[in-house]
Simulated assay, not measured.
Amino acid sequence: MFAVLNRGGRLIVVDFDKNENIQHPTVHNSFSHEELKETLAEVGFSSTEMRTFYHGKQIFMKQDASMFLASSVK
């Protein structure tokens, strides 16, 4: 995604917060905020902002979970 964005372009990610209780070979148990921030910075994104915006009961593989929004600028 970094390569196709114009300078100043924004990458927006919406996903579940990392959930260590989810273990399945075909299911991604999401990202920790710090790991995702590090990865985005390594490829060149700056100004990454993240926040959890929703908590729900049994919404991810029948587990309680929360969701986050991340925004990074190229």
Score class of each variant (00 low, 15 high):
Met1Asp: 02
Ala3Cys: 04
Val4Thr: 04
Val4His: 02
Val4Asp: 02
Leu5Thr: 09
Leu5Asp: 14
Asn6Thr: 13
Gly8Gln: 06
Arg10Met: 15
Arg10Asn: 12
Leu11Thr: 14
Val14Trp: 09
Val14Lys: 07
Val14Asp: 02
Asp17Gln: 04
Asp17Phe: 01
Asn19Met: 02
Glu20Tyr: 05
Asn21Leu: 04
Asn21Phe: 04
Asn21Gly: 03
His24Tyr: 12
His24Lys: 04
Thr26Gly: 03
Val27Asp: 01
His28Trp: 01
His28Ala: 03
Phe31Thr: 04
Ser32Phe: 09
Ser32Leu: 13
Ser32Tyr: 11
Ser32Ala: 03
His33Tyr: 00
Lys37Tyr: 05
Lys37Ala: 12
Glu38Ser: 06
Glu38Tyr: 10
Glu38Arg: 14
Leu40Met: 06
Ala41Arg: 12
Glu42Thr: 11
Glu42Arg: 12
Gly44Thr: 07
Phe45Cys: 05
Phe45Asn: 01
Ser46His: 11
Ser46Trp: 05
Ser46Ala: 14
Ser47Trp: 10
Thr48Ile: 05
Met50Val: 13
Arg51Ile: 03
Phe53Val: 12
Tyr54Phe: 07
Gln58Trp: 09
Gln58Met: 09
Ile59Met: 13
Ile59Glu: 01
Met61Asn: 08
Met61Gln: 11
Met61Gly: 04
Lys62Phe: 00
Ala65Met: 02
Ala65Cys: 14
Phe68Ala: 02
Phe68Pro: 10
Ser71Met: 15
Ser72Lys: 08
Ser72Gln: 07
Ser72Met: 11
Val73Asn: 07
